[in-house]
Design a protein around this nucleic acid. Structure first.
Lengths: 336, 336
DNA sequence: TTGAAAGCGCTAACAA
DNA sequence: TTGTTAGCGCTTTCAA
């Protein structure tokens, strides 16, 4: 079943069928109808490889998913799913690359013209893949922001602003000493962009407002969370506000706080940076800055499509954080 | 940069370069060396689309990942990663399809020759995608086992045997009344194969051994787990052994049991069906049947490759469960 | 508005 | 052991 079969069936030339399919030139309504009907009757599906060869477009994009220590898989998959969904909406498929494939994987899928472009998640401040991405003739979009964005297209939540927003919210409620319960140590050690930027925003805003801060990296295991929280509140008894930037730690953290006999938000206010589903499923529901995975993934795809179509220069898109007050942050308790 | 450039550089014909690359005919060592060197010097990478068109092989397989309610994402991703890794070991890439694409997605990637074969995860007893898979000329492998396996190639842990092994272990320790804390209700409602088979094995073995059983589907949220466990132990005070077949419920379950003032394993024995990392990270470490995601994913890929090479008939591969005793199951407590 | 035909870069059948 | 060459099925230029 080839394009010429459709052409014969519809009484037109192969090129006409091709143009009906691609929309790259105008076709009379009658012809278009006949062709589409033939396609339908014959169940024609164009050969992807032939298309890719002739058009130099595979209609596939590569997605590098981060599966390394400290990563919270469900959130990573929210991004991935939104990339796949958005790509499909724009007639593209997604090739799945793992971190393990590394830079050679990027070179391979680009060099063989297997994909038209690349989306990379979980970008580090000084990411080893960036020189490779720069060297490719294929466009790419980073989900995350490295130190040097020259010539790169990046998109992410504005984590610095998110960190600031959390501090501002707590400060406005009167809190004078707050702590950030952050990502696992390994995430900071490899200098993941979003984690570092959150800390920077957190500290800067606090400094400007004269609020005292502590930052506690935190492993995800409930026991580790409990230990971190207990240690923190023990060493810094003046802390009345917590910012949590660690999805799997959210629930254990609330348990731990309760275990210490402290009520949220009466004794301790908690603000999270997390996807809405995580923030709303706790008791009490968390005041939070939402992590808009869907929007970021969708934006990454449209930026990539724009680059494929040669639209516009590289750009860094930072989505503004939205802090939604729920039930976990309240005015600082009166001093005993 | 094309194959003819390499051929010229090496002083051979394009077909020789092609054969050096594919290994499909013997090449003199001297020629092979020259060709490989030219490839290296020129940095040649064959065009994937051209290859696919000429050879009728894309060297890509599709993977349908399950992202629906009740699914535990990290475990699903363990399977996915192992599929990607194994595929790469065999020179194949992986195209990511979501459940949402449905059967039309399967038809599309097969019909356009975008992929050579398909791996489907999270198969239901009467899975809607099976007629479609049967109708395709492309081979497929199911991770999971439907009711009618005629003409299908399937691989999975033998969950029925796993359910049996858990019961057998507890029964051997003297337990006479046990409960299965299972997957979320939605998983049973859509009749997911592995969940149903576990229940079947659990019940059958218990029946044969004269052990009383209860089955409690269980949502993943900690509060839901606590409620389920509390309700269960309240209604069935004779229960001294628990089988947990629900990864995210494992930790909350242990917490809930402790919260009821019961010790594991002194008062209550617990056996899990879960990946080793989940079973070993709890306190106490859980006696468990491991969920060998890596092995299942790898096996799925090699079965698919065999089908691509026309080896052998369809087959159902059930990996035998391995129960590893750890610290969470002990002899039934003496009656008070 | 449509058609004819020249490739796209590779593989594999055939020939030597 | 190697070379020649005819496709693979599509897109797109050129021509009408």
């Amino acid at each position: 079943m080839r394009i010429s079969d459709v052409a014969r069936h519809a009484g037109v030339s192969p090129s006409t069928v091709s143009y009906v399919l691609s929309g790259k030139r105008s076709i009379s309504p009658a012809t278009r109808r006949r062709v589409l009907e033939s396609i339908d009757v014959l169940g024609y599906q164009p050969h992807a490889g032939a298309r890719a060869l002739a058009s130099n477009r595979s209609n596939v994009i590569a997605l590098v998913v981060p599966l390394r220590p400290g990563i919270h898989v469900p959130v990573a998959m929210q991004f991935a799913v939104s990339v796949v969904t958005s790509a499909r909406d724009r007639e593209h498929d997604v090739l799945l690359l793992t971190q393990a494939e590394g830079e050679s994987g990027l070179r391979r899928v680009a060099g063989t013209s297997m994909v038209d472009g690349i989306i990379v998640m979980d970008v580090e401040v000084d990411d080893a893949r960036i020189p490779t991405l720069r060297s490719l003739s294929h466009p790419s979009v980073l989900i995350g922001v490295p130190a040097d964005t020259e010539g790169l297209t990046c998109v992410d939540l504005d984590f610095e602003a998110a960190g600031r927003a959390c501090v501002a919210h707590l400060a406005a409620l009167g809190h004078r000493e707050i702590a950030l319960v952050g990502q696992p140590p390994s995430v900071y050690e490899r200098r993941t962009g979003f984690a570092e930027r959150t800390v920077a925003g957190f500290r800067a805003e606090a400094h400007e407002r004269g609020v005292e801060t502590t930052v506690v990296p935190c492993d995800a295991a409930p026991a580790a969370v409990a230990a971190s929280v207990t240690g923190l509140l023990d060493e810094r008894p003046g802390v009345t506000g917590l910012v949590v930037h660690n999805e799997p730690a959210v629930a254990p953290l609330l348990d731990a706080v309760r275990g210490l006999g402290r009520e949220v938000p009466a004794d301790l206010s908690v603000v999270a940076i997390a996807p809405d589903d995580i923030a709303t499923e706790t008791s009490p529901p968390l005041t939070s800055v939402s992590l808009p995975a869907e929007e970021v993934g969708g934006r990454a795809v449209s930026l990539l499509m724009d680059k494929l179509d040669d639209f516009g220069p590289p750009e860094v898109t930072l989505l503004p954080p939205r802090l939604v007050p729920r039930a976990s942050a309240a005015a600082r308790p009166a001093l005993p």
